[in-house]
Amino acid sequence: MKNRNNGTAIVLIVVGALMLFGLFAPLLGTLAGLIFPILMIVLGFYGIRRGRVLIGTVVLAIGVLSLLAKLSWIIGPLLGIALVIFGISLLKGKKSYY
């Protein structure tokens, strides 16, 4: 039983050291930044399902807003692309949106 604990301890020490030296920054930095808001959304949804509507809604809203803030670098360009495509389709007159 001690050997198994030693292996886990060594893995944790190596991962912790790599994190301290910033070698996981490209992978862990973006991933960890998204994990926390997603966890808040899941916990908020779970709280609403369990009957704690007020606290669940607050946690869910904070998680959604935080996730939107983290993903704003992709939301802006995607919105721009959607607007360009919508404008081109209006100019061509293929569909009537009114």
Rank of each mutant, 00 (worst) to 15 (best):
V42N: 02
L43E: 08
V53T: 10
L28K: 01
V15K: 00
N6D: 06
K94A: 15
L65V: 11
L18K: 01
V84K: 05
I10C: 04
G56L: 08
I85E: 05
R4N: 00
G16Q: 01
M1G: 08
I10A: 11
V42A: 13
K94P: 02
A9D: 07
I13M: 04
I35P: 03
S66N: 08
I81D: 02
K2A: 14
V58H: 06
K70P: 00
L39M: 13
L78A: 10
I88S: 04
K95A: 15
L67F: 15
I55W: 05
V15A: 09
L20C: 09
G29K: 05
L34M: 07
I13R: 00
P77V: 03
V42D: 05
G76K: 08
G51K: 04
L18D: 03
G51C: 10
I88C: 07
R50W: 01
W73I: 11
L60M: 14
I55M: 12
N3R: 05
L54Y: 08
A82E: 04
G29N: 08
F45I: 12
I74E: 08
A25S: 11
A32C: 07
F24A: 10
G44E: 04
L65S: 08
F36L: 15
G29E: 09
L60R: 02
A17P: 01
V84A: 09
A32R: 00
N6T: 06
L65F: 12
L83S: 08
G44R: 03
F45Q: 06
V58A: 15
L39C: 14
G16L: 13
M40C: 14
I48H: 06
Y98N: 02
K95I: 14
R49G: 12
A82Y: 07
T8W: 06
M1K: 01
L54R: 09
S89F: 08
R49S: 13
F36H: 01
P37V: 14
I48Y: 06
A82N: 02
I62N: 06
Y98D: 03
L23Q: 11
L34I: 06
L39D: 09
V58C: 10
R4G: 03
G87R: 02
L20N: 01
L31G: 03
I55H: 04
K2D: 09
V59R: 05
L60A: 15
S66L: 15
L54W: 12
I88Q: 01
K94N: 15
I75H: 00
V15M: 10
G87D: 04
R50N: 11
K70A: 15
N5V: 10
L71G: 04
G63E: 07
V59F: 09
K95E: 14
V64M: 13
W73C: 00
L39G: 11
A9C: 03
K70Y: 02
L79Q: 05
G51W: 05
S72Q: 04
L20K: 01
A9H: 01
G22Y: 12
L65G: 14
A61F: 15
S66P: 00
V53H: 07
L60I: 11
L39K: 03
M40H: 07
M1T: 08
P37R: 04
V53W: 13
G63N: 09
Y46Q: 08
I75C: 03
F21D: 06
V11S: 01
K92C: 13
